[in-house]
Computed example of a mutant assay.
Amino acid sequence: MSIFQFKEFSVEQKNSPAKITTDATVFAASLQISSNVRAVLEVGTGTGVLSLMLAQRFSDIKIDAVEINPIAYEEAQNNFKNSKWNARLKVVLEDFIEFETDHKYDLIFSNPPFFKDNLQSKTNHGKNTAYHTNQLSFEALAKGIDLNLAENGEAHIMLPFYEMSLFEKEMNKVGFQCKRITELRHQAGSKVIRLFTVYDRREEGVNIEKEVIIVRDENNDFHYSYINSMKDFLTIF
């Protein structure tokens, strides 16, 4: 599908190596931010869909998005420009490892590449960068978040279960602790598809908030938790 139509915006994704996925859109739809957040950064925006979703949800925020792939950068730039929130969205063509601004962000979020040792495409190098940790290791991501996040800021990350455990170790090394975990499951009894985890610079041992979002119920209809998350975005609801 070249163009994905949401209720309030559309996303061109013909050329971007990373296409729109259910897990990523639920991540953006369920992401919680405090009322004092103004400056937001997305690491690896791809088509820009997650930044667009946050711009729709939160009218007071401005979002900078970093993208290393020139093709994805062009599509994200066009998707931002064609949206009603274009004044609050900006994409930068840059490697996050080298990214640094003169101001800190209140919130950083990312659906980062996570495959490490899996077989990779011999021809589609853009897809390798989008899905594998070739260009952005968990260590580099954690250090970049530490560098660019305000002292009281939060980092929101989406990863599979095992990869999140590896990433959390890197976040701990730079002084962050887990604050909240949302589990995404296809059905109530199935394994965790993805974890949405929030980190901040808090003391160790503080209780972690937990939530579960389920895509399908026992009848294979959409689960109410999924509908509640996506009803403002998907045209089927």
Rank of each mutant, 00 (worst) to 15 (best):
D217M: 05
D64W: 06
L93C: 12
L149A: 08
E12P: 08
S190G: 07
L184P: 02
S30D: 13
P160N: 02
E204S: 12
I236V: 14
F196V: 13
E203D: 14
D95R: 04
K116S: 15
A55R: 08
E67T: 05
D95N: 05
L93S: 12
L107F: 11
Q77M: 09
K81S: 10
Q56T: 02
A29Y: 00
H103D: 08
L136F: 08
M230D: 02
L52P: 11
T45R: 03
A87L: 13
F6C: 05
Q77I: 05
N36L: 14
R180N: 06
P17V: 01
Q187N: 09
T129C: 14
N79Q: 02
F233S: 05
G48E: 01
S51D: 03
F114D: 03
E163L: 11
F237K: 07
T197D: 11
N134D: 14
Q77S: 08
L147E: 12
K14L: 07
F6L: 00
A142E: 03
N82D: 09
L149P: 07
N228I: 15
L31R: 02
P70E: 07
V212E: 01
F109I: 00
V174P: 00
E154P: 09
A140F: 07
S229R: 13
H186T: 15
L195D: 04
E209H: 03
I208C: 13
E183Q: 11
K19W: 08
L136Y: 05
H132R: 10
T235K: 10
E204V: 12
N36Y: 12
V92W: 14
D232I: 11
A140I: 05
I33Y: 04
S137L: 09
I68V: 09
N152A: 02
A72H: 03
N134E: 05
A140D: 10
S110K: 01
Y131S: 09
K173R: 14
E151H: 14
E100F: 08
G175P: 00
V66P: 01
G44E: 02
P112S: 07
S165D: 07
E218H: 12
L50T: 14
F233L: 10
N79T: 09
Q32R: 14
G46I: 00
A87I: 13
N78V: 06
T25P: 09
V215A: 07
N172E: 09
V192P: 00
K169S: 09
L141C: 03
L166S: 15
N69Y: 05
K62Y: 14
K84S: 14
F233M: 05
P112L: 10
N220S: 15
A188I: 11
N78L: 08
E203A: 07
F9Q: 03
Y226V: 11
F27L: 09
